[in-house]
C-alpha cells in the first residue's frame, strides 16, 4: 500500500526536478559572480564604489529572501515596466542577489585574512599589485572560501523551494498540488519532498566536506 503510494508520488515530484535544478544552478552562478564583484569592490580604494556595494550587501543581508522575492515579483514589472518573460528569472535574480550579498562577505573576509606576511614576501620578490593578488593572495583566499561556498550553495538549494510561492512548477509545487487533491496523503507526500531535496543536497554536502579538507590543507602558516 505504502510502496504503491511512493511509486505514485515520486514520478509526480520528478516533474519539478528540472525547475528546481535549473533555478539552483542559475542563481548559484549569479550569486558567485556577484560575490566576487561585490567582495572585491568592498576592498577597493574608491570610497564611492565601497559605499554603493556596501548598500547592496546590507540591504540584501538585512531583509528576508522571501520578502525580496515577493518585492521583485511585483516591483520588476511595475518599476521598470518590463516583463522578464517568466517568473523563473525573478526567482533566479532574487536568490542570486541575496546569496551573492552573503557570499561577498566570505570573499572579502578570505582575502583580508590572507596573512600580511604573504603580501610582504611578494613585494620582496618585486611583484606588482596585480601579480600579488593573482599569484599569491587570490589562490589562497579561494581555498579558504570553498567550505562557505559549499554551505551557502546548500542554503540556496533550500531557498529554491520559495519559487513555488511565485508559481514556478518546482518539486514543492507538485507536492502541494498532490496534497491539495489528497489530504490524507500529506505526511507521505511532504516526507518524500523532503527526501527529494535531501538527495539533491547530498552531492553538495559531499563537495562542502571536500572543500573543508582542501582549505585545511592549502593554507597552513607558511
Amino acid at each position: 500500500m505504502k510502496i504503491n503510494a511512493i511509486i505514485d508520488i515520486f514520478p509526480q515530484l520528478l516533474k519539478g526536478l528540472g525547475v528546481t535544478v535549473t533555478v539552483l544552478i542559475a542563481s548559484a552562478l549569479i550569486a558567485y559572480f556577484m560575490a566576487f564583484i561585490a567582495g572585491l569592490c568592498r576592498l577597493s580604494n574608491n570610497i564611492i564604489i565601497r559605499k554603493i556595494t556596501g548598500f547592496y550587501v546590507e540591504v540584501f543581508r538585512g531583509t528576508s529572501l522571501i520578502v525580496q522575492l515577493f518585492w521583485l515579483f511585483y516591483a520588476i514589472p511595475m518599476l521598470f515596466g518590463i516583463q522578464l518573460g517568466s517568473n523563473w528569472w525573478t526567482g533566479v535574480i532574487a536568490i542570486g542577489l541575496n546569496y551573492g550579498a552573503y557570499l561577498s562577505e566570505v570573499v572579502r573576509g578570505s582575502i583580508q585574512s590572507v596573512a600580511k606576511g604573504q603580501t610582504e614576501a611578494a613585494i620582496a620578490l618585486n611583484m606588482s599589485r596585480f601579480q600579488r593578488m593573482r599569484i599569491i593572495i587570490f589562490p589562497q583566499a579561494v581555498r579558504m572560501m570553498l567550505p562557505e561556498f559549499g554551505n551557502y550553495t546548500i542554503q540556496m538549494l533550500k531557498g529554491t523551494a520559495l519559487v513555488s510561492l511565485i508559481g514556478l512548477k518546482d518539486v514543492l509545487y507538485y507536492g502541494d498540488i498532490m496534497r491539495s487533491t489528497n489530504l490524507s496523503q500529506a505526511p507521505l507526500i511532504y516526507l518524500l519532498v523532503l527526501v527529494f531535496y535531501f538527495i539533491l543536497a547530498l552531492p553538495l554536502i559531499w563537495l562542502t566536506r571536500k572543500g573543508e579538507s582542501i582549505s585545511r590543507k592549502g593554507v597552513a602558516s607558511g
Binding site: 507536492g175 511532504y190 523532503l194 531535496y197 554536502i205
Partner: peptide, 9 residues
C-alpha cells in the same frame, strides 16, 4: 539541508 518551508508544511 532540507528547506524549512517544506518542514513548515
Amino acid at each position: 539541508s532540507t528547506p524549512p518551508l517544506v518542514q513548515l508544511f
